[in-house]
Design a protein around this nucleic acid. Structure first.
Lengths: 336, 336
DNA sequence: CTGAAAGCGCTTACAG
DNA sequence: CTGAAAGCGCTTACAG
């Protein structure tokens, strides 16, 4: 490992000259710069980022906390984050909360230790259920920019990027109504997240504004062990002819289960889900889905951080909302 | 941001005493330690990792490079990596190569800049196609541990963790033969990766060792644009009654396509794929899959790094191979 | 048991 | 245009 000092003594120049040359300072003559850069290459000089960070008080690192990468949606968001971060010369550190508040808190602490320049976070189910956002207090005092995405805390002092979940669910429900569905149920394994609440809201709003007479039917569960029994129960006491599911997996499970029970999709039962991922495309029939543009969410989150970073004096809080799109496939009937 | 020095002057102690107290040095009296720790908590002292890294010459960071997180398999591996890394108090920095050699190389450089303690890498398609591993040369001289996983360079000086792809494909093919399939084709979008090659090898070995008379049929493609035409062509000139697909997506696509063309699965055509992810479980019929235990791969990769880290003097190279398991579902027929 | 001092590898205000 | 010096926030060998 060649250091800057070593390079200096090799070239018989001062360390400061080397540093300035490598950083393209206008103070240095082109001739010297060239010499230095060549030597740096020759001797495989690699600047030590720890030293640099210590001096400059910025690490060019962003900490990212998501509930789970194996969830296809968060995987895509992470992909978007990484691309956009790289574009701005930031490297990302990632941690997964596994939907545990304790872990989420640990990760946040850890990122502060690492002096990341900012944190991007989507809260764990537990955090949202308990409404426990105390761990953000440190951040507030510390000036470190934090941007929330997808699962956010509303009305907080931090910026956020979200999907227009309410509108997405509203449009999906409206579409079902327009195809002639009379009794639409809402299936949600994420009832306790901000996202789940907004989707439910959209569903209820749509029913109401279309003068829907029958009661809303909400099938909300925390564990897939409870899902089938609850579904059965709901279908026994109602003539359900459509489901809107609050995420991808629950949409697939609903589809597979009702088919197993002998219902035809979409003739007898229509299904719309959220998250337009590969699962919904691979099912049989392919699912009509509310598409969320996960990568865009990732990119916007980074952009929001960059703004806060570059103009820390301007008002920093901004709330970005990304529109959804209803992707029609064969799990719903054609419009009447 | 309270620093150690500030804490020292508050407590009227030397910085070295503070440092030792917080690091639980036996040199310091319990009474002092307690006082220091309490003050640290009170004043919200957060140690600066950059300074620590600079001094200790280790960052407690691992760099991870994978082709793509939106691939469910790599997502799971990453999940395993993060869990195991956290267990050993390492934080991960991640970058995605998007299967580009240039990006992969940039990421590697970047990680060296950050002085990560080690790198875990699964090579890009491009790297494997071009057999271009020059970017590893720097690492060799720099002593930094690197562990390859899944897509690896065989016979190199770096440790590796792989799936037993050959055996997995061998067993899957053998299973198809035992269910009475006569003409088995191999579908691969990853022909140029080490993984793809081993799977093909297993397929060919199985055909041979079961005295299979007919020619192997390999449908290898780089873009899904080419897939359907190639599949059609292959099926026209052969009475294919089974496919083994080298990954999850190609298995799903094969399934959907042959069904679209009117074939019954598994009655007329059997299908086995690789990667036992959620896609294969959601398809109709659900797919028989070679399960790879992706999370275990992630954990083993970290373990291998930890060993190299802790005992740098012992022989460090180790090659771990993880066994696969054939998960039977409804895309294959029962055994004869 | 506590402290003074040096140093990790950089950057930058300042001097020449 | 180049260089000497200080300092970022820690840790640790050494002294007392």
């Amino acid at each position: 490992m060649t250091t800057l000092k070593e390079l200096a003594s090799i070239l018989d120049l001062a360390p400061s000259t080397i540093s300035k040359s490598l950083n393209n300072s206008p103070e240095i003559s082109d001739c010297t710069k060239l010499k230095v850069k060549e030597a740096a290459k020759e001797f495989g000089y690699i600047p030590n980022n720890a030293a640099r960070s210590l001096k400059l008080k910025r690490t060019k690192c962003i900490g990212v906390i998501i509930p789970n990468v194996t969830d296809a949606f968060f995987g895509k968001v992470l992909h978007g984050i990484e691309e956009e971060a790289r574009k701005h010369n930031y490297t990302i550190m990632v941690s997964f909360s596994n939907n545990s508040h304790r872990l989420e808190n640990n990760h946040l602490q850890n990122f502060m230790n690492f002096c990341v320049d900012g944190v991007l976070i989507s809260f764990s189910t537990e955090t949202q259920r308990q409404k426990n956002y105390k761990h953000l207090n440190n951040l507030e005092s510390s000036q470190m920019p934090l941007v929330m995405f997808d699962r956010v805390l509303e009305n907080s002092v931090f910026s956020s990027v979200t999907i227009d979940d309410l509108e997405g669910a509203y449009n999906a429900t409206t579409h079902l109504i327009k195809t002639g569905c009379k009794k639409i149920a809402f299936v949600s394994p994420i009832a306790e997240t901000s996202v789940g609440k907004n989707r439910k809201h959209g569903y209820l709003d749509a029913l109401q504004s279309h003068g829907y007479s029958s009661q809303p039917i909400c099938i909300e569960f925390n564990s897939y062990d409870d899902f089938k029994p609850m579904l059965k129960e709901a279908m026994k006491s109602n003539d359900i002819d459509a489901f809107i599911a609050a995420d991808e997996l629950s949409a697939i499970c609903t589809l597979n289960t009702v088919q197993q029970w002998g219902y035809q999709v979409p003739n007898q039962i229509s299904i719309v889900g959220f998250t337009n991922g590969v699962m919904g495309q691979c099912s049989n029939p392919p699912l009509t889905m509310v598409s969320q543009n996960a990568e865009k969410m990732g990119k916007e989150t980074v952009k929001s951080f960059i703004k806060a970073m570059e103009k820390p004096n301007l008002v920093r809080i901004q709330h970005k909302v990304i529109k959804t799109e209803l992707v029609l496939r064969d799990s719903t009937r054609p419009l009447l």
